[in-house]
Simulated scan of single mutants.
Amino acid sequence: MQWTEEQRALAQKYKRLEDIPVEERRYKCHTCNHVVDATPCPVCGETELEIMCPLDHTHCSHEVVSGIEYCPLCGAAVCPECGCHDVSQISRVTGYLQDVSGWNAGKQQELKDRVRYTVA
């Protein structure tokens, strides 16, 4: 993913999502799938909202991509073509494809640290 200079500056300005001032935050509601400016969600009333990464645009048009990259601000998996954070990452484990969102933090970090090679 080729991050713009504005996105790189934002990632350097805030080291964690919690560092973003409350008045600048946006939230993702995973109950009704809306992006809102305040908690609780005005659409469904959900109170457990996730702080939305400012580098996320939430509209990925790619169904399947071969690789994955990670957000420089929040560390979440992103689409390598558009930078959208709403991706499901799968990996082959002992012959089966599995969604990695259920893995523990150590196993997810191991996946991030893997070196990928291409055969020419």
Rank of each mutant, 00 (worst) to 15 (best):
C29I: 09
T31Q: 07
T31C: 05
H34P: 02
D37K: 14
A38F: 07
A38Q: 10
T39V: 15
P40Q: 04
V43G: 00
G45V: 14
G45D: 12
G45T: 13
E46N: 14
T47F: 05
T47L: 05
E48N: 03
L49V: 05
E50H: 02
M52R: 06
C53F: 12
C53I: 11
P54W: 13
D56E: 13
D56P: 02
D56Q: 03
H57D: 13
T58G: 01
H59D: 10
H59A: 06
H59K: 11
C60E: 12
C60P: 03
E63S: 02
V64H: 01
V65L: 04
V65N: 03
V65Y: 02
V65K: 00
C71Y: 06
P72V: 15
P72T: 15
L73V: 14
L73R: 04
C74R: 11
G75L: 13
V78S: 00
C79Y: 09
C79P: 08
E81V: 15
G83A: 13
G83H: 09
C84L: 11
D86F: 05
V87N: 01
V87T: 06
Q89Y: 01
R92M: 15
R92D: 05
Y96N: 10
Y96F: 12
L97S: 01
D99V: 08
V100Q: 01
V100C: 05
S101L: 09
N104G: 13
G106M: 14
K107H: 04
K107V: 11
K107R: 06
Q108I: 12
Q109D: 10
Q109I: 05
